[in-house]
Amino acid sequence: MVIGAGGQIGRPAVAALARDGWAVTAASRGGGRDEDWPEEVRAERLDREDDAALGALIGDGCDLVVDIVAYGARHARQLTALADRIGSAVVVSTVSVYEDGKGRGFDTMSEPDGSPQYPVPVREDQPTVAPGDATYSTGKAALESELLSAGDRLPTTLLRAGAIHGPHSPLPRELYFVKRNLDGRRRRVLAFRGESRFHPSAARNIAELIRLAASRPGSRVLNACDPQAPTVSEIGAAVDEAMGVETETVLVDGPAPSPSVGSSPWSVKLPVVFDMGAAERELGYRPVVSYADSLPETVDWLTRRLSGQDWKEAFPALARVYPDLFDYAAEDAWFAT
């Protein structure tokens, strides 16, 4: 059973498992189907917060539960309470659980001197934030802690994903370049000389890791990222190539001149890059798609979603996190100086 099957990761995960011979129940709040799923996939409605509904859907038991939307200690205990009816689990976590050993991590990035100084690349034995419920990162750390402590009863592979990309994303960072190109903006600004690296994770690559972990149950934590971590300048160039446009990039030394000028969703002061060696060794992981090769379908999906509606209506989650992505007036005023 795949919980969260209707989302960005769930759709390719269901397809990958079905192709691998699993009899898949695709559970989501809406209970819908994806056009790429085989007919034999069983789609069901599920409210992730309803303990009884989850237990009823698992029924007498299933070999594998893939939980893409689990968050916090409560969801972990929800799964471990059903451990006698679940063979193994694969649960999606996040790289934002990592800290640099001095208390700095994703939650401190906006603070003075709060940018984490991670090793390059970050391995799975890097320290993590304390479990809790104060932030997204601490909640995911709590999820991991509970599941790992119950590994003898419910073998669980935890996949720490990076900046997830691909169609059906609620937080499509690629929109930063795609919308500018669609709007005819042929000049853009990037902070930190465009050299920021924030490791992306293709939804299709995460689905491949899920498929591999499904046939190799165990209690483990693995990074779940793409083979390379391109710079933000390289990402912009790849989007341009996918869209067939030419642009000029103005590079700024140091941080963005203002929150609405030069600050992309990947703009970090220090590199955030993750080691994929453990997944290769333990699961035989090989990425199924590179960042550049994945872009055409992402660009096409974003273009269709933007058609006829404001970007904040099309992507409200992105607008909440990055409200100043497209302040063209501020950019033009900065260029004028």
Score class of each variant (00 low, 15 high):
L79M: 12
A81I: 00
L82E: 00
A83C: 08
D84F: 10
R85H: 01
S88T: 08
S88W: 06
S88F: 06
A89H: 02
S93W: 09
S93K: 14
S96I: 05
V97E: 09
V97N: 08
G103V: 07
R104W: 05
R104I: 06
R104G: 02
R104T: 03
G105W: 01
D107F: 04
T108D: 00
M109C: 05
S110Y: 09
S110C: 10
P112G: 11
P112I: 09
G114R: 15
G114K: 15
S115P: 08
P116W: 06
Q117E: 13
Y118T: 03
V120M: 08
V120P: 02
V122N: 00
R123D: 13
R123C: 14
E124M: 07
D125I: 12
P127T: 15
G132D: 10
G132W: 04
G132L: 10
D133C: 09
D133Q: 14
A134H: 07
S137Q: 13
A141K: 03
A141S: 13
A141L: 06
A142E: 05
L143N: 05
S145Y: 11
E146D: 10
L148S: 01
A150F: 06
A150H: 15
G151S: 07
G151Y: 04
G151D: 03
D152A: 12
R153E: 09
L154Y: 00
T157L: 07
L158G: 04
R160P: 14
G162P: 07
A163H: 09
I164S: 04
H165W: 12
H165F: 13
G166K: 05
P167N: 10
S169N: 11
L171E: 01
P172Q: 02
P172N: 01
Y176G: 02
F177K: 04
V178I: 14
V178F: 03
N181P: 01
N181F: 14
L182W: 03
D183Q: 15
D183S: 15
R185L: 14
R186K: 12
R186F: 06
R187E: 11
R187L: 02
R188H: 10
V189Q: 01
A191M: 11
A191G: 15
A191N: 09
F192R: 04
R193E: 05
E195P: 14
E195R: 15
S196F: 10
F198Y: 13
H199M: 13
H199V: 12
P200Y: 05
P200D: 03
P200E: 03
S201E: 00
S201L: 00
S201M: 00
A202P: 09
A203H: 03
R204G: 04
N205S: 09
I206K: 12
I206M: 14
I206L: 14
A207W: 08
E208I: 10
R211H: 04
A213I: 06
A213F: 07
S215M: 12
G218A: 14
G218M: 05
